[in-house]
Design a protein around this nucleic acid. Structure first.
Lengths: 332, 332
DNA sequence: GTTGTTTTTACAACCGGTTGCAGGACTCTG
DNA sequence: CAGAGTCCTGCAACCGGTTGTAAAAACAAC
């Protein structure tokens, strides 16, 4: 069916190895012969079988990129940055979605093994132990997770979360709640820790509610917990949850930002479109995508490259979903 | 490095072919031997090399899915639907993004060849001729494009576009403009044709402005053309463009829906979050994703399966970005 | 105990490339 | 013109599996 290297060799009147070298090491073959081979290849429409090549060389020139949920607007910018940068470096990126399911994530890694030279795990849902175990088989780079001995790009949401608490405390809020994300999320823990520390500094109360599904649904359902806690300031795990929470609060009769202030995380397009426009912690996703590819390629090339962990700062972007606490508690 | 079938064979004291069959045709091997092989495999942590398997069988059990822009909220729901349905059918889906560039798209198809059993082209930017040419090498299924001899899922935006014109005409608008999308977009042509026909039926004026980049930017820039045409009704190629156009109009002092009514296409989350909430044409993306995988697998299995083209209806969803035309032209 | 049938396993070729090695042709020296 | 050095090309093994075929073993029937 498909034309192989042997047919090209036949047509050009040379040995297969010559054809192979024409493409993989052109300088080793006589210019004239090379022309002949290239002509024959073009004539027959020869395309090298990359899977076969990978079998001998051990290199596929593909990277895998695993995310929990493509539909979460946090991921696409990162994916695009990674993809276009990888292309420049001569790699193709295959993206796969785990549906927030750690089992699928693990299965996916298995499938990807030996079809790619390395895998980028973005906000993985697997446990650290599982990641380390799987990492023995396949180079990884991890985004938003600190894993021992593994190259990582960390968006330090802690700085942003601290700033968010400063901001809320400054507006007079005395009771805050953090709406956490998925169980194994490093980012979620990071927010909780940093917000907790900042809250203590300001002497304001801070409680935690989680884990939650990192979706609008998850936020919507969590709104009840916010009201139950009597909180007037909320930091949600991501923009989607924040948007959902705002809706949930509205349903329960609490208006944002009049009654409750809500801060999101990620600075996604969804947050910018939402009304009220979301106050949120901006993540440098594009930088992270590029950097992660960089680290991964480095890990692939130099087998053991010492652990590099790159930490990127995050900033609070103040928009319209936060405001001063009204003097009198409205819900008595 | 990695453990191969030979090492397992050695450990279990059998020939490699027995190991192979233990996994690919278990019923051909004695239960007791099978146990031994499986134990040895587990012990050594054997994982079959899928690339090698693909080389002999010609089957990878992978599908490719090519989209123009993952960050466009139209795509993720479709991707997710395709991916999860494919998983059920025993296939893995690799997604790749072309950055709206036909050249990248073509290159990508070349890379994907023989690493996947077939490719799903969603809203391709390539010309029909190119698609047909490339389709000779690799099974395709196409979404939102009609290509001779190729299985396709078409979301007939025409019905929705007609309904949109009906809606706008009913609100009193007499001058409409269609903001088209990318050059090779079938959907864009579809909208233009159907809207044109409906406009004629109602005796309202309709002009076309395009091609435009299918992004907020593209819509923002096109706002000027809307005003220049003196139109009070707009149908944009997609929600993003519609949102951008609304912003652009606002910048120029025209308010939506008071001065101009805008209709989007796709019914994405962005449109729902936007204020005013977008009136838009809802596309059955999830159904389309599933159906496309179905058609593709069918094409893969039965080499020549006659062209199946599946047409899905679209509906107009009326929200807040459309309203009655004010009696007096505001911009005199 | 022989023959025939079925089950189970081993052998070896093959998928489509790559690559170390060896040898032939050619060029350059002395 | 012999010998050394280059350049080019062919040979053949190999990557890690699969699979058709043949041989061996187990079993059944007579």
């Amino acid at each position: 069916m498909a034309v192989t290297i042997r047919e090209v060799a036949q047509a050009a009147g040379v040995h297969v190895s010559t054809v192979s070298r024409t493409f993989s090491a052109p300088n080793l073959v006589n210019a004239e012969t090379r022309e002949r081979v290239i002509a024959a290849a073009a004539e027959l429409g020869y395309r090298p079988n990359l899977a076969a090549r990978a079998l001998t060389t051990g290199r596929t020139n593909n990277l895998g990129l695993i995310v929990a949920d493509i539909a979460n607007p946090f991921f696409p910018p990162l994916i695009k940055a990674a993809q276009s940068y990888a292309r420049v470096r001569g790699y193709q990126v295959f993206v796969a979605d785990t549906d927030e399911d750690p089992r699928v994530e693990e299965e996916l890694i298995g499938t990807l093994a030996r079809q790619v030279d390395g895998v980028l795990l973005v906000s993985p849902r697997l446990s650290n132990a599982a990641i380390v175990r799987l990492g023995a088989d396949l180079p990884f780079a991890v985004v938003n997770r600190r894993v021992k001995g593994m190259p990582a790009v960390l968006m330090d949401v802690g700085t942003g979360a601290g700033a968010a608490v400063d901001h809320l405390a400054g507006l007079g809020h005395r009771r805050l709640v953090v709406l956490g994300g998925p169980r194994n999320s490093w980012t979620s823990g990071q927010i909780r820790r940093a917000a907790g520390a900042a809250a203590e500094r300001h002497g304001v109360e801070l409680s935690y509610h989680g884990p939650n599904a990192p979706t609008e649904q998850g936020g919507y359902r969590a709104a009840a917990a916010v009201l139950a806690a009597g909180a007037t300031g909320v930091i949600a795990y991501n923009d989607l949850m924040a948007i959902g929470a705002i809706e949930g609060l509205a349903t329960a009769g609490a208006e944002v930002p009049r009654d409750v202030s809500v801060v999101g995380v990620d600075d996604t397009v969804a947050g910018r479109l939402n009304r009220p426009k979301l106050t949120t912690i901006a993540m440098p996703t594009q930088t992270a995508g590029r950097a992660a590819v960089d680290l991964l390629l480095q890990a692939i090339d130099e087998a053991a490259s010492g652990t590099v962990q790159m930490i990127l700062e995050t900033d609070l972007v103040v928009r319209d979903s936060t405001g001063p606490r009204v003097a009198v508690e409205r819900r008595v």
